[in-house]
Nucleic acid binder design. Structure first.
Length: 151
DNA sequence: GCCAACGTTGGC
DNA sequence: GCCAACGTTGGC
């Protein structure tokens, strides 16, 4: 099983949105970066993902979700009403990928960005690299354990 | 709201 | 294929 970290603005979709409906999968849509999309394509059902809250008051890792449905064409790209619409995408040749995620757990407390920066063993994590904007990234087994151990 | 860093676009 | 201009991200 692979592990991942996905960023989200909690105003849009937070760990609480998952926790409030633990039996309902949520479409992870709107990723519009090729590198991040390629990681979405690599996700398998059952893979676990850290949910990272960004661009908000309390920045950090808030919980864990898992892949419920693996990669399929992001429906938002075909929807002219969606902010994620992409006129260049066709059903024959879709450009963007979605997955469905489902709740696993909320961390006992938020693991803040500052805390993550203070840990050794996370030097390879894209999240912590200067200027990184990648919104979907792999997390190694040891990185995962290092972070989980904080809780 | 600022702004550094980054990815994408498009003219050449 | 280069690269300047532009739009976006995201911490502060």
């Amino acid at each position: 099983m692979a592990r991942w970290l996905v960023k989200t603005e909690p105003d849009e979709c937070s760990i609480d949105d998952f926790a409030e409906n633990p039996d309902r999968a949520i479409v992870w849509e709107g990723v519009r970066n090729y590198q991040a999309r390629n990681f979405l394509r690599d996700m398998a059902v059952g893979d676990e993902c850290f949910i990272y809250h960004s661009s908000c008051k309390h920045i950090g890792i808030a919980g864990i979700v898992k892949v419920f449905r693996s990669a399929y064409p992001d429906p938002a790209q075909f929807d002219p009403e969606s902010p994620y619409h992409d006129a260049r995408s066709t059903t024959d040749n879709p450009r963007w990928t979605a997955v469905d995620m489902i709740f696993v757990s909320k961390l006992p407390r938020l693991i803040t960005l500052d805390e993550l920066r203070g840990l050794s063993g996370l030097e390879g994590l894209s999240l912590l690299k200067r200027g990184s904007r990648l919104s979907v990234m792999p997390v190694s087994e040891s990185e995962w354990e290092t972070i989980v151990a904080l809780c």
